[in-house]
Design a binder for these strands. Structure first.
Lengths: 165, 165
DNA sequence: GAAATTTATTTCAAGCATAAAATATTTGGG
DNA sequence: CCCAAATATTTTATGCTTGAAATAAATTTC
């Protein structure tokens, strides 16, 4: 683990920043640029092809993985978004007939959300198309670069997981 | 340039996807995960330390680079967001006294947005602190990994720039 | 030079996202 | 049992974001 993050070069004036710091900032700005570009492309395709949105796709994806359904709180922590946010997205998906809320035995506070049959069918189709879009948007990414990218980003992610010190 | 993106292995059933396609999807999901995590951390810091937001920071950053100011349309294309979006953010920054709108000579449709003196001063301070936050969040990222990341993401970005075919 | 088109910006409606407050229910002492 | 604390979820207020429509001014075309 890098422990140098707060150590300053004594030769450096306090209003300047190190080269490594600038390299990391550039890396972050590049991540941001790519993720916004790709997200924008995917959002547009979702809207035009399916009349839907990425957040709804994400909720359905999480539920597709756990066929028994999930609680609202499980959903919001799996997707790393706020509780209130999930409430709204689930509401819309219920209206569309993609999801149902099922009461939980012995806990009247909670409810479990599940894909309907229609929701499952729709998602299965959309997921395949979605993977095709992503593969096309990333068609210049070789297998080895994909692996390198994943490795590097995992290190970054794990460093920032939980442990708010 | 990879031209294979639409070629399917004839041995593969049409409802399955290739390994490279799955690797690219994993890479994309990892990018998304990291960028959301980091963006969340930075948003919180911005709010707590400066009572401000990332979109406002981004607008001020763009204007800091071009001291003569920018038109609304220049701003929105530099930040790659919609015109209407910029209108709202600029409105708030004007209210805060960070920005001014200056009419353009010979074109009464347009206006130029500039940082005020206070805006310039505030941004200079915030930018340094911001760089420190980023460097800390990415403190596990070595110089060589930062370079590798930037190189890989640049290829992805350039492939998706403009040329909507 | 009037009409049609293009360009620059704003407004609008809808959805996404957060933080904080509110509501409802369950659980854990005393 | 009662009540305080914890838990699950929704509601509210605010801001960001988009796409589309509206407004206004400049440019082009006839």
């Amino acid at each position: 683990m890098n422990m140098d993050k707060t150590v300053r070069d004594p030769d450096m004036p306090p209003n300047e920043t190190s080269d490594i710091s600038k390299a990391r900032l550039r890396a972050w700005l590049q991540i941001l640029k790519v993720s916004r570009k790709i997200e924008g492309e995917l959002r547009e395709k979702m809207r035009l092809e399916f009349g839907s949105t990425l957040p709804r796709f994400d909720v359905m994806a999480a539920l597709y993985r756990s066929r028994d359904g999930m609680r609202m709180s499980e959903l919001s922590s799996a997707l790393m978004v706020s509780n209130g946010n999930v409430t709204g997205i689930v509401d819309r998906l219920v209206t569309e007939g993609m999801l149902v809320r099922v009461p939980v035995e012995n806990d009247r506070r909670a409810s479990i959300v599940r894909l309907t049959e229609a929701g499952e069918k729709d998602f299965a189709e959309r997921a395949l198309v979605h993977e095709g879009w992503v593969s096309e948007l990333f068609s210049d990414l070789s297998a080895s670069d994909a692996d390198a990218l994943i490795r590097i980003l995992r290190t970054v992610y794990h460093h920032n997981e939980a442990h708010h010190d």
